[in-house]
Structure formats: C-alpha cells, structure tokens
C-alpha cells in the first residue's frame, strides 16, 4: 500500500503528461480530415460509431516524400550530436580535471549562455552571419573577401546554431560521468607503463562511454524534431520533419496527417532511447565491476590521481 502511494504521483504524472497526449495524438492520426473547427472528424463518435481511417499512416509509408524528410532529419540530428560530442568531450575532460573550486565556475560558463533566451541567441547569429553582418563586415573590411560571403541560410549556419543551442546537453552528462570515474584505475594503468594516450584510449574513454551515449542522445533527440533553428539559420532546402509537419498542419490544414507524422517521429525516437538504456546498463556494469576489483589491488597506500 505504501509502495502504491509512493508510485502514484509519478504514474499520475506520466498518465497526464505523456500517455494522454500521445493517445489524443494517435486518435487524431486515425481520423479523417473534414472542414470545420477542429478540421477533422473524431475517429469514434456516438452517432456514427467507428469512422476512423488508416489512410494517414499508409500515406506516410507509401509516399517517399515523408521518408526522405525523416532521413534528412536523422542525418542532421546525427551530425549535430556528433559535433556536440566532439566539442563537449575535451571541455568535460577539462572540467573533471580542474581543481574542485574551479569546477562549478567552469560549468557555469558552459551553462550561462543556455540561460539567456533561445531566440535572442539565434537572432545574434543572424546579426553576425548576414550579408551586412559583423563577420562579413570584418572580412570585407580587412580585404580578405571582395564581397559578402553567403554565410547565413547555409548548412554551416544551421549546424552552428544547433551546436550552440545543444552543447550544454552534451557537456553535463559527460562531466558527470568523468567525475565519477575511479582515478585509481588510470593510475594503475600508468604504473604498469601505459603512456597517457594509451591510458586515455584503453581506460578513460571506455569508462566514459555511458556518458558519451547520454550526451549524444540528449542532443540527437531534440535535434531530430528541431524546427526553429533550420528555419531561421538553415538553407531553404533543409526540409526536415519539423518543417514538413508544420506544412501539413498549417498549410494543408491536414491535422490527421500531421498527427500521424508526430507519432511516427515519436516511435522512431524510441529506438535510440532503448539503445541508450541497453548501453547504460552494459556501461554501468562495465563501469562498476572493474574498479572494485582494481580498487582492491590498488589499496596499498598509494595516493590516487598521480596522472594529475
């Protein structure tokens, strides 16, 4: 009974804020579009009984247009997540290696831009990258380029915006994982003659994999559905799933198809989340058992942290 009471709030939360909206979305995805307010017929009504349709879901599968946009979104999300991971790793390593008093200020510096508004930051990039913007102003002013370079509305600008927006999501889990690792293991490897690079490659890196996977996914998942950044900074051909969904909802006023797209995106993203859970379980097993073993042999009075 106590257990039930403890579990009730999180379950109520999940039901109200996750299960119910998804169920409503799935209901709209199964309904037929019709002019009116709202612009569809409910899939089940008291008067007509079942009047839903699988047509919207079939359209998603049969029309290559949607598969194409999903694929592009996954590629953009993958590249953004990889770029974030690549940038975040040295930052996280540095923060984890810093003296204790320094860690919080360093983390704050990573998070600080995150606390300012999202749109003003994008607006700042527009101001920097546009034809009459600062970057082009400096380049032409110094005579590096003859005229303004088309920096804005490009893939590069889009990835810049993505990395800038999502970098803290990658730094935080990596830092947490790297801080938790047992330094005695690295020390043991160094004592046994491994060079710093070999220590990093064979000990530090494998130990940080769960954090890296979390970092990758925390960027990948929101980036896959990202709408605003590609729209404001990216090239017009960046036809990602967010944009396609917007067009179905607002331009075609086809709420059922838009809902079907949203459900499909959700289902697609469950796969990497499951993968992450598996990695995490495997990783924590790998991360937990060897240090306890090594920790036992290393407990002969030497101070850990010789590497530093």
């Amino acid at each position: 009974m106590r257990r039930f009471l403890v579990l009730l709030p999180p379950f109520a939360w999940l039901l109200a804020l996750v299960a119910a909206p998804v169920a409503i979305l799935a209901g709209i995805a199964l309904s037929q579009g019709a002019p009116g307010v709202p612009p569809f017929l409910p899939p089940v009504s008291l008067a007509a009984g079942w009047q839903g349709t699988l047509e919207n879901i079939l359209t998603l599968v049969q029309d290559g247009y949607y598969a194409g946009s999903f694929l592009r979104s996954l590629v953009v999300a993958g590249v953004s997540a990889a770029l974030c991971l690549g940038l975040a790793y040295p930052v996280a390593l540095g923060i984890a290696a810093a003296r204790e008093g320094w860690r919080v200020p360093l983390l704050a510096m990573v998070l600080l831009p995150f606390w300012t508004g999202f749109l003003p930051r994008l607006g700042a990039w527009i101001g920097l990258l546009r034809d009459g913007g600062w970057v082009n102003g400096v380049l032409t002013g110094l005579g590096v380029t003859a005229g303004p370079l088309p920096l804005l509305y490009s893939d590069a600008a889009m990835y810049l915006g993505m990395v800038h927006a999502y970098l803290p999501f990658a730094v935080l889990p990596l830092t947490a994982t790297l801080l938790r690792r047992d330094l005695a293991v690295e020390e043991a490897a160094a004592d046994l003659g491994a060079s710093p690079w070999v220590v990093f490659r064979t000990v530090t890196l494998p130990l940080s994999l769960p954090g890296a996977a979390a970092a990758f996914l925390l960027v990948f998942i929101p980036a896959a559905g990202e709408f605003v950044i590609p729209e404001l900074l990216g090239p017009p051909e960046a036809l990602l799933v967010g944009r396609v969904l917007w067009a179905e909802f607002f331009q075609n006023r086809d709420w059922p198809l838009a809902a079907a797209l949203a459900v499909a995106l959700l289902v697609l993203l469950i796969a990497p989340i499951r993968l992450f859970q598996r990695l995490d379980e495997g990783g924590s097993r790998r991360g937990a058992s060897p240090p306890s073993r090594v920790g036992g042999t290393a407990a002969d009075g030497r101070r850990p942290g010789v590497l530093r």
């Binding site: 307010v37 612009p39 607002f250 709420w255």
Partner: peptide, 12 residues
C-alpha cells in the same frame, strides 16, 4: 502568415 491565423482558429 495566414497559416498561423487559420491554425489558431481551427483549434477553436
């Protein structure tokens, strides 16, 4: 854009 207007009105 008209899309924004119509989207909001369609929701009721």
């Amino acid at each position: 854009s008209l899309e924004t207007l119509e989207g909001k009105l369609s929701a009721g």
